[in-house]
Amino acid sequence: MRDWKLMAKALGLDISEQEIDRLKPALDSLEAAFRPLTAEIPGEVEPALIFRCLLEEKE
């Protein structure tokens, strides 16, 4: 499991250690469900995000 306290510190987040303790169960369960999925993504799959160059230029 990730060390959320270290991560918060490294990211310079204004989250206290007590608050991290409260978040930990939710973050750990999400991490446990999500992390294994990332190992199975084929390289050619792009994220479901779109940047439309022409549209952006017009704006």
């Binding site: 990332t38 084929p42 799959v45 792009e46 994220p47 479901a48 995000l49």
Partner: peptide, 12 residues
């Protein structure tokens, strides 16, 4: 990285 991978998993 997790966010981008989540958006890739969404497509799958």
């Amino acid at each position: 990285t997790d966010y981008v991978n989540a958006q890739r998993l969404r497509r799958l």
